[in-house]
């Protein structure tokens, strides 16, 4: 079995267990009906709701593969929503111009991170922390800290709420982004360059690789992904919420990458794994919301504890040391 597939096994197994839990506890989880020419059901919701984190995780995987990290993605999401609101509501700009401009600005924000990391030489966690703090501030400045409703543009509402091919349009966006990224990264030498930079920077440089160029492009790409995620978030609630859009989602994105089997040390990376990681997180969220114990919802104080436990178990399963310990024990028993 190729290594990438082997790596995918554990996250898929975890997702499977979560789904199995739902077959036992919430049969309603799997019901899918058609209303207004659109499939509706919790499974569809999971895919729909997971889209922002899937997009963030795509960029985050590549950044982490270069032994970096990007903490600013949540703040960039907030910037994207606020900027789009400003352009659409205050300036009545055309939708396509708004999307292009917003994504452009977010890509620039990503490039800024890349410059700080690869040219100025600041550690990634510190460099991106700057934008994490400043980005949300900028977003709040743009909206005066208020929630700005964006209800004048049906086209904008389509991004996060429209129906395409009988499914939420977000699913099309997520699938295209994932396929496009995998094709570009895996069917060119780009993926190899990224792994090489993360694996051994000095060796990469001696091999004639533009380490700086690789870093700049992965951070820019992450900014772009965060921008798209921010547009979807704002479109979903048809409002720009600078205070809460993307808040703490950088952590979900990093978690998705880790659950997917990519090491934070850099080097080898698994895009499909990160997507499964994002799906695990969202399935878990929806499961907690839907599960009832003795006819009552899960008490809210337990939400985070349950999440932490599941994440802990999945991480244990991923750990080589734990795997070896289990193997050794089995060998002794035999």
């Amino acid at each position: 079995m190729p290594e990438a597939l082997k790596k995918l096994l554990w996250p898929l197994a975890a997702l499977g267990v979560l789904l199995l839990f739902n077959t036992a506890m919430n049969p309603a989880f799997f019901s899918i009906t058609i209303s207004d020419g659109r499939l509706t059901g919790s499974l569809v919701d999971v895919l729909d709701r997971a889209t922002p984190v899937i997009l963030l995780a795509l960029g985050m995987t590549l950044v982490i593969a270069t032994a970096g990290v990007d903490l600013s993605v949540g703040a960039v999401m907030a910037m994207a929503g606020s900027l789009a609101a400003m352009l659409l509501v205050d300036m009545q700009a055309h939708l396509s111009a708004v999307i292009v401009l917003t994504l452009g600005v977010c890509a620039l924000a990503g490039l800024w991170n890349g410059v700080l990391v690869s040219i100025v030489g600041i550690q990634p966690i510190v460099a991106t922390l700057i934008l994490m703090v400043a980005g949300r501030g900028i977003a709040q400045l743009m909206t005066d800290g208020q929630i700005i409703p964006i209800d004048s543009s049906p086209g904008f509402a389509f991004l996060g709420g429209g129906t395409f091919l009988g499914l939420p349009f977000t699913i099309t966006l997520a699938v295209s982004a994932v396929v496009l990224t995998i094709v570009v990264i895996r069917f060119t030498a780009l993926g190899l360059f990224i792994e090489s930079v993360g694996g051994n920077e000095t060796a990469s440089r001696y091999a004639g690789l533009s380490v700086r160029g690789v870093r700049l492009s992965v951070y820019t790409f992450t900014g772009l992904c965060a921008g798209l995620a921010g547009l979807i978030y704002a479109s979903d609630i048809t409002a720009a919420d600078a205070n809460y859009a993307g808040l703490y989602l950088e952590l979900d994105a990093i978690l998705a990458v880790v659950l997917g089997g990519t090491s934070l040390m850099g080097g080898r990376f698994y895009l499909a794994g990160s997507v499964v990681g994002a799906l695990i997180i969202q399935t878990l969220n929806t499961t907690i919301l839907m599960t009832e114990i003795n006819g009552a919802s899960v008490p809210v104080e337990y939400n985070l504890v349950i999440k932490a436990l599941v994440v802990f178990v999945v991480c244990l399963l991923q750990s080589e040391t734990v795997k070896q310990m289990i193997m050794r024990r089995r060998a002794v028993h035999d």
Binding site: P27, F29, D45, L289, M290
Partner: peptide, 17 residues
Amino acid sequence: TRSKGKEVMEAMLKGEG
């Protein structure tokens, strides 16, 4: 938050009962 309010309501409406 608005976004979480929407997500939670969505799940509740589809859940048992």
